[in-house]
Design a binder for these strands. Sequence first.
DNA 1: TTAATAGTGTCTTTCAGACAATATTAT
DNA 2: ATAATATTGTCTGAAAGACACTATTAA
Lengths: 249, 249
Amino acid sequence: MDEREFLESYDPSEFPPVAVTVDVVALTIRDGALHVLLVERGGPPFAGWQALPGGFVLDETLDAAALRELAEETGLRPGEGALGRVHLEQLRSYGDPGRDARMRVVSVAYLAFAPSLPDPQAGSDARAAAWVPVAGAGELAFDHATILADGLDRARSKLEYTPLATTFVGPEFTIAELRHVYAAVWGEDLHAGNFHRKVLSVPGFVESTGETTTRGGERGGPKARLYRAGDARLLHPALLRPAREENVR
Amino acid sequence: MDEREFLESYDPSEFPPVAVTVDVVALTIRDGALHVLLVERGGPPFAGWQALPGGFVLDETLDAAALRELAEETGLRPGEGALGRVHLEQLRSYGDPGRDARMRVVSVAYLAFAPSLPDPQAGSDARAAAWVPVAGAGELAFDHATILADGLDRARSKLEYTPLATTFVGPEFTIAELRHVYAAVWGEDLHAGNFHRKVLSVPGFVESTGETTTRGGERGGPKARLYRAGDARLLHPALLRPAREENVR
DNA sequence: TTAATAGTGTCTTTCAGACAATATTAT
DNA sequence: ATAATATTGTCTGAAAGACACTATTAA
């Protein structure tokens, strides 16, 4: 087996042709609702369908390919401005035979958490890309609905154990803004008072800037204190969602 | 971009040749210590080095490829006997350019939890495969040390939130056997009394068989009650490791 | 003034962990 | 008998969640 591997390595055309792509589940919060970045496919298969942004992996790491695709679709430059604060992590890979009718395609999916970004500019490389409310996303091309669902699961879970909710907001934020992130991702409202005390009690989750907002809420209320992300990488103790019966089975 | 994708799809040789493989981090408990299945490489590169079992993905799902490789290396048949109780899940993918000097290789790594399996038979397809104590594993070929480390991290974490510790033991087991699984994977002893009460308090983790062991421990002690895995898919509340300061940073 | 919101206080219940105690069994 | 182990009991402190309360601000 090893010898065969070795010999085959000298003639790549011996392999069944496999393409490796990256697909990105990029999430952000807009108007209090969770949005995902989708592109409209120009050509077959699934022409005109919505799909996750993605493309072939070039001579680069998988992480770099994902970041490049995200930058291309948003029209932003990697590592610059708002894109510099994007959290990007590998989700999982999808490689069922037949998931792309043209040929065997193994896709490495990535999950991105972004603060509110400008609308993608229909430009050079950018196809018709847009932030779409997750709740209103229709059918997706290929197996992208599955990938999106897996990404949402991962995102919901990550908010429990990590401080990544802060990557959805600006560099300075209020506790209420953070709570709205949790509410949008988890799809359920959280008790303001308990959430407030909980966030401040977790070491390294947030740290105070000493400043407050310049004015209260739109419909009244006191000025809120501002915080920035702390140095914690994991939340101890975690912010657990209420246990649902579906999980136990 | 989409047009180029479409056109390229008709001429696979246009792609830079990429090979897709699966590598399996198969873990089991032997003599109270965590072991990983390793093979000795026969040919270059890394001839004579130890490596994770793996190979090319054929016309099959990624999961099927991982199960096939595991079956080949252990000499067991997939879905049969002990292999039928193996837990197999995708870990993550590794695709840095240069991780294999011969060509671009993207590897989809899998994590397997197995009850104690017989020693692999050096047979037809099986190379020199063996269960090696994780603590005593030396350097590994390619980036397999990284993959193993990621697999161990995942395994340690999975024991916290899922009942997968039961996949390391037989269909019937004592609470003490389960505790030894946790001790071996986490690398720390657990308080017997507290662990016992905790396991029984989590709904669906284990269920009693009504039987007991036929004799006590080797060095004395009462007979222990026997349990089988329950129907829980997640542990609520979870069995958390003590929080370590390294996590917060 | 009114309504909304930020932030704090309090109480109950659950749970983790330390520790003790008892019963059972191999040697 | 002795030592080891299974199992249960008790206590303390941390933490989650329900709820109430005060202070502040926009309209």
